[in-house]
Simulated scan of single mutants.
Amino acid sequence: MSGDNYGIQLAAGHLTVPAESKEPYAADVLASLHEDAALVVARYPQKRSALLPLLHLVQSVDGYVTGRGIDFCADVLDLSTAEVSGVATFYTQYKRHPNGEYTVGICTNTLCAIMGGDQIWDEVSEHLGIGHDETTPDGKVTLERVECNAACDFAPVVMANWEFFDNQTPESTKALVDDLRAGKDVKPSRGPDKVCSFKQVSRVLAGFHDGLADQGVGAGPASLVGLEIANERGWTAPDGGAAKADKGAAKADGKSTGKDEA
């Protein structure tokens, strides 16, 4: 993608943020950030532990981790900008260049891949004209190859701003990205009634609830099959506490349990 819009990928593999990302926050925006940051920091016994949610807070305002956002986090948490940048460049949920309104992640790990994930990626990438971690010219969709969307029982799986779209096909995924770009409300397979924007989701990840946690279902039928079988057959999980008590009693009696007690 163009370096003018999406940062410069250097030979060393580091991203140089655009110059405009270092411009100071407007006074009212900065005041609001400090107010929210104080609430986040108050949750931790050591304030430096609040760095991860504060980076999400920055993304909820700027849409990615800007230079000024790094300065803000460093100032609030008494960290160096190098420490903040080291964290921001380690986790892929933190973007170091402008991100789309919707991050669409296509799982191409083993199970999803053999169930059609690779084909979905190829066709959607060609359909949008972008590759991994690139954004459509309208700024709507950033496309990612994802190692695992943590929903193998619904493979192949696609996520939009970390909401599940199960049992996808190339056609359904192309329709998904087209609807997102058109500004339509899109309902995921599970979770809230519609996919929220990247900035809105970033604010939730910073620890500010959006009131949507109880919308929709949390687990689909395929995820519950094991539980249903266990209930039908009367299976229960081992009582860890009882097992430890039995082991302790055996030791007290001077008996061997016949197992490694290390």
Results as ranks from 00 to 15, higher is better:
residue 142 T to Q: 09
residue 97 H to T: 10
residue 32 S to Q: 11
residue 9 Q to H: 15
residue 210 D to P: 13
residue 216 G to V: 02
residue 186 V to F: 01
residue 200 Q to R: 10
residue 142 T to D: 08
residue 28 D to N: 07
residue 212 L to H: 14
residue 122 D to T: 11
residue 175 A to M: 03
residue 82 A to R: 14
residue 198 F to Y: 15
residue 197 S to P: 14
residue 109 N to K: 13
residue 172 S to K: 00
residue 79 L to E: 05
residue 230 A to P: 02
residue 71 D to W: 01
residue 249 A to G: 06
residue 49 S to K: 15
residue 132 H to D: 09
residue 192 P to L: 10
residue 79 L to F: 06
residue 123 E to H: 00
residue 204 V to L: 11
residue 40 V to K: 05
residue 6 Y to C: 14
residue 240 G to S: 07
residue 119 Q to H: 01
residue 24 P to H: 04
residue 251 K to H: 08
residue 18 P to D: 03
residue 69 G to P: 06
residue 16 T to Q: 14
residue 194 K to W: 05
residue 179 D to F: 00
residue 128 L to E: 02
residue 64 Y to R: 03
residue 167 N to S: 00
residue 98 P to V: 14
residue 105 G to L: 00
residue 84 V to L: 08
residue 190 R to F: 12
residue 241 G to R: 11
residue 186 V to P: 02
residue 122 D to V: 08
residue 115 M to A: 06
residue 39 L to Y: 07
residue 48 R to Q: 04
residue 122 D to S: 05
residue 229 I to C: 15
residue 118 D to Y: 07
residue 25 Y to T: 12
residue 38 A to E: 15
residue 248 G to S: 15
residue 27 A to M: 10
residue 188 P to S: 03
residue 167 N to I: 01
residue 44 Y to S: 14
residue 8 I to E: 03
residue 120 I to Q: 03
residue 189 S to C: 05
residue 106 I to W: 01
residue 145 R to N: 05
residue 187 K to P: 07
residue 73 C to G: 02
residue 105 G to V: 06
residue 197 S to W: 02
residue 31 A to C: 05
residue 112 C to Y: 01
residue 16 T to L: 09
residue 74 A to F: 09
residue 256 S to A: 14
residue 1 M to W: 13
residue 153 D to V: 11
residue 35 E to K: 13
residue 166 D to Q: 06
residue 237 A to R: 09
residue 163 E to H: 04
residue 175 A to D: 08
residue 51 L to F: 13
residue 120 I to A: 01
residue 131 G to E: 06
residue 142 T to V: 12
residue 206 A to F: 11
residue 107 C to L: 00
residue 89 T to M: 06
residue 29 V to G: 10
residue 65 V to F: 00
residue 131 G to A: 15
residue 5 N to V: 05
residue 97 H to R: 14
residue 160 A to H: 04
residue 17 V to N: 15
residue 203 R to K: 14
residue 262 A to F: 15
residue 148 C to D: 06
residue 24 P to T: 04
residue 192 P to F: 05
residue 240 G to R: 09
residue 183 G to C: 15
residue 33 L to C: 03
residue 93 Q to I: 12
residue 235 W to K: 13
residue 14 H to F: 13
residue 181 R to Q: 09
residue 157 V to C: 06
residue 222 A to C: 09
residue 213 A to E: 14
residue 202 S to T: 10
residue 98 P to E: 04
residue 163 E to A: 05
residue 163 E to Q: 08
residue 52 L to F: 11
residue 76 V to H: 03
